[in-house]
Design a binder for these strands. Structure first.
Lengths: 212, 212
DNA sequence: AATACTTGTTCTCTTTCTGTTCTTGATATA
DNA sequence: TATATCAAGAACAGAAAGAGAACAAGTATT
């Protein structure tokens, strides 16, 4: 599978198509099916491309076997290794303040957050406005890393959306008949809501601050 | 790829364009596509420039093959190696506590700290023991990112080595006849030293914490 | 097992696309 | 003025791509 083998446009296009649609076919497609799917009228034309992809090592030789168009094992390996380092980082989506909805950034940017302060699951970053969590060492301007999830355990710090309008970062205590959001600020009081009023948008997993 | 070939303005411009827009083309662009993208009307004009870039070693020779304009493998390598100088991350070297020297880790590990909480200059990471900076939101177990330097401005938070034995993280105030290290903890008092006793090992530029 | 059907393979022919070369003229640069 | 740089366009040759026919090997049906 040396890359001295340069694919032509159509060959690349065909390869992309096969890769993207490999799940769509319960079994590997016939040439005719592939033709139809790609808008070609002649198997012969397609076959030439297939042959080149075989030579290039992307798909297995089909040797007259029917429904033989399948990607090479080697290629699949190579492909996952290529696909992995696509991590562009954790999205920094906006600012969160007590009492107002999340201010979304017009253009999301991505930060390279170390694994130590995030999780394997989808995370996003918010910048903190206000000082409702100041006693816990979360200050105005800090970034918080939030794991996206819709439930939480009591005592966790969560991003909570209240009445579908106001987002806030608070400790959460959930009881059958009420949900309490507790700030970490001795000048502020816990807020009590009906459980239906509060929607959890994520759980705090990390925090960071710049002193520059 | 010797630079004895000095590129003309237009050639350089073309090269820059290709480099910047290589993601925009799903496949290497044809001369026509490049013409259109650059606002030219004639392939012939473009071709001469391409030819020079080939001679200069930036672009693969296309030898009548219709596989479009693609950058040389050598050039790409050289380019990424220039752009990303093997950043293995910021070294996490140990823990810092008030009153004892830095506990060095036996094997240093590296973290991928985002640019937002470090600087361009050499930085390292310490884990905080104790609560001498608790009023400033730096808690036990937090990581602090330190820019390595031997001087600081008054009011900055520094890693200070006292009498060449004890390292500590404190605010610093330097006067001609004494240096004061101020904790951010209302239960602790500022400590006063002769300037010779205190050696600055770095300045705080960032902090991060895990809630996992 | 014999049959018809499906599907992969090979071939030729044709059309379209794309890199290459030239010539001409315009504009800048020394 | 002389020179280098650049753009435009025409013309050409080779490459890429598609259509279709004919064949052969596999698969399904009876």
């Amino acid at each position: 599978m040396n890359n001295i083998y340069h694919l032509t446009r159509k060959q690349q296009q065909l390869l992309d198509f096969i890769i993207e649609n490999q799940d769509r076919f319960p079994q590997p497609p016939t040439l005719d099916e592939l033709c139809f799917a790609m808008g070609l009228k002649s198997r012969g034309s397609l076959h030439k491309h297939i042959q080149e992809l075989i030579n290039a090592g992307y798909i297995e030789a089909l040797n007259r076997k029917q429904r033989g168009v399948r990607l090479t094992a080697q290629y699949l390996e190579q492909n996952v290794s290529l696909a992995e380092p696509e991590q562009q980082g954790t999205p920094f989506v906006g600012a969160i303040a007590a009492g107002t909805p999340i201010e979304a950034l017009e253009n999301i940017c991505y930060m390279n957050v170390p694994d130590e302060i995030k999780t394997d699951k989808p995370c996003y970053i918010l910048q903190v406005k206000g000082d409702s969590m100041i006693d816990d060492g979360i200050f105005e301007g800090d970034w918080v890393i939030i794991e996206q999830q819709s439930h939480a355990r009591n005592g966790q710090i969560v991003v909570a959306l209240i009445d579908k309008t106001d987002a806030t970062l608070k400790y959460i205590e959930q009881y059958p008949h009420e949900t309490v959001l507790v700030p970490a600020n001795k000048n502020m009081s816990p807020m009590r809501f009906h459980p239906q009023q509060v929607e959890i948008q994520g759980v705090l997993v990390g925090q960071m601050r710049s002193y520059k």
